[in-house]
Amino acid sequence: MEVTKPAGCTCEEATEEELLARLDEVLTEYRAKPGALIPVLQMAQGLFGYLPEVALKRVALGLNKSFSEVAGVVSFYSFFSTIPRGQHVVRVCLGTACYVRGGKRVLDTIKQKLKIDVGETTADHLFTLEVTRCFGACGLAPAIMIDSDVHHRVKPNRIESVLGKYRSEVVVAERSA
């Protein structure tokens, strides 16, 4: 599988100018609303796939806040990322319930399969690996979250098939393109 596009790229990828224009629309809509910063950042991350400096500067200007305030909020919350991430973010829960039911082994297996460490992205920009705090799937531990799907009772020997689903989605998307 040849993937030559930059991170977070989909087939009909917009240029940076187009993304910034869309961000401006969001900013116009939210400018007058109090407490808009976090929803705006969530939408900006949805547009860009991560939060590049150029977007943060635009948000700061648009909401009339200092860049440091915006950057401070971004670095405070774990969902925001200022570095490009893969198409799919794999989050392994290491909350206590998952931990005592083998979450660590799940994490080690994923590291091994993807050949990356926590916080890194695979060379083909398909997967980013993160560790997350408990997200309340403790009854079905150990759990992992890929994008917004929660996978329950993940065993090390099932990981390949779980990840494979996300690999093949890209293949399908590329074929249909």
Binding site: G95, T96, A97, R133, C134, G139
Partner: peptide
């Protein structure tokens, strides 16, 4: 914001 591990 149910954040306390392991609460659901």
């Amino acid at each position: 914001d149910e954040s306390e591990p392991p609460t659901f």
